[in-house]
């Protein structure tokens, strides 16, 4: 179990190309779709990760690992994410100092970069579906996005507003709802 978790995250780390956010589609495919983690919980963990300092990829890995199998899972998932990049960077630093000037590398990355952005954008759709959102309720994430992108409001505040909003909304409606079973 622990070994499998470590291997999954090693694979994720190896294909984290173009920065930490690239782990989102990979975790969705390798961890959530495999049934290791509930999809709605994944989105909650994602929001928590955004309000933490440090490296996004290892933070989300640690949180997911922790959720799947406790402290040891968290440590193994975070280590798995960094192990492959670590040795590749050492190899590059020691032997291929000028890899960024290699014409083939340049070609490959010209095509990879916009594709990575596409892969990062794609989970928006699954998040929309999984949270059973209607087009009308899209107004909330759209406002949040405008505040963060155009007005540079910190994600931490947007998440705090989300928490408060969630509580107030249900208080206001006085709606009885089922609690998720632990």
């Amino acid at each position: 179990m622990h070994f499998k978790l470590f291997c999954q995250f090693t694979k994720i780390g190896l294909f984290t190309i173009g920065g930490g956010y690239a782990v989102i589609p990979l975790i969705e495919k390798e961890i959530v779709n495999q049934g290791w983690l509930d999809r709605t919980e994944f989105y909650e963990l994602l929001a928590i990760t955004e309000s933490l300092p440090g490296v996004f990829a290892t933070n989300i890995a640690a949180l997911v690992g922790y959720k799947v199998s406790g402290v040891r899972g968290g440590i193994l998932a975070a280590l798995g994410t960094v192990i492959a990049p670590f040795f590749i960077v050492i190899l590059v630093a020691a032997f291929f100092g000028k890899v960024q000037d290699n014409p083939y590398v340049v070609k490959v990355f010209k095509a990879l970069r916009p594709v990575v952005v596409g892969l990062i954008a794609a989970p928006c759709y699954t998040a929309f579906k999984a949270n059973k959102m209607t087009l009308k309720s899209l107004i909330i994430p759209i406002i949040a996005l405008i505040l963060m992108f155009f007005f540079h409001l910190s994600p931490v505040w947007v998440i705090v507003f989300g928490c408060v909003g969630g509580i107030l909304y249900h208080k206001f409606k006085g709606e009885q709802r089922q609690l998720p079973k632990n």
Partner: peptide, 9 residues
């Protein structure tokens, strides 16, 4: 309340 925000993130 947080889950819809994750879409924006």
């Amino acid at each position: 309340g947080v889950r819809p925000i994750s879409l924006a993130l």
